[in-house]
Nucleic acid binder design. Sequence first.
DNA 1: CTCGGACCTGAACTATGGTTGAGGTCAATG
DNA 2: CATTGACCTCAACCATAGTTCAGGTCCGAG
Lengths: 167, 167
Amino acid sequence: MSEKSAERATEKVPWDHVELTVGEVAARSGVAVSALHFYERQGLITSRRTPGNQRRYRRDVLRRVAFIRVSQRVGVPLARIAEALRTLPDDRTPNVRDWERLSTAWRADLDARIEQLERLRDDLTDCIGCGCLSLSRCVLANPHDSLGDDGPGPRRLLVGTGAGDDL
Amino acid sequence: MSEKSAERATEKVPWDHVELTVGEVAARSGVAVSALHFYERQGLITSRRTPGNQRRYRRDVLRRVAFIRVSQRVGVPLARIAEALRTLPDDRTPNVRDWERLSTAWRADLDARIEQLERLRDDLTDCIGCGCLSLSRCVLANPHDSLGDDGPGPRRLLVGTGAGDDL
DNA sequence: CTCGGACCTGAACTATGGTTGAGGTCAATG
DNA sequence: CATTGACCTCAACCATAGTTCAGGTCCGAG
């Protein structure tokens, strides 16, 4: 981090580039400008504005964006990522310990997701053996874990309590 | 749930109930009527219409719906589920072997997803140790597996090839 | 023959995670 | 001083997986 800020020996401000434009952040992070705008609207990142109303980012935004990308890969929705990012200190640049804390929380999520999928795989394997897929008898059709949704569907109503099936 | 025609000990067509109404399918499968309509529009299930334009389902629709629910839990999008269901024979009711084939395909998907997540977990564990989260150096921020998307985001452009980071 | 519950259609709305486009501004360069 | 590229905002749109609502129909009971 801030390795540059130490050696500004020349007085010509050679490093007026401590702040990044949105285009630079996009190029460096591999995230589209529109996505950065979106993240800002959602409160995941922040920027200063120049007198001409253009965004200027502190360099640690790169780490934030990296964290966002990683979190999404883990399967965490943006709202929860935003929540996590809000726990970072605003008075100082987040340090290794801060990021470690957040990442550790995600690992627990990931562990849970993996376990859930493994259970599902085992159930599915059983069901391939018995070929049931019967609504009332099959463990698969009757999720014991109503909570812990996953997948793209926004609804999680899980009406449940169907009825005995006699297919 | 009007279980009106429960006693068909009478000789008057004892089993006129081999077909199910949409409400019955909803009750038995635990899926909302609106979802059944939706599945039908998407070609995942089909129905006959009565002279009064009401839907009547064959009983194997229950197994189909069970398969849809299970597939969604595995994380397969409806479009792919529909594709899979189209490979079922239309001339006869699908049998155990048919369902087995489909389920086996999903298990491969599931295995891949689990493996991917385990890789991610390992990477994350490493990154917690090193606390890097640096865009160019961190394995996490640079997905080696551009394909194999997951999570709610519809876009998978993955602009990639960012730049060296000097955070 | 009327009543109510179950059913029908189509359009609009929810939420997530953005992209795309229109119309206008900022800033550096020739 | 004009031009060009990067930037700005706001609104509309994409896909996924449905729900909700309005307005109308069907059908079985009383």
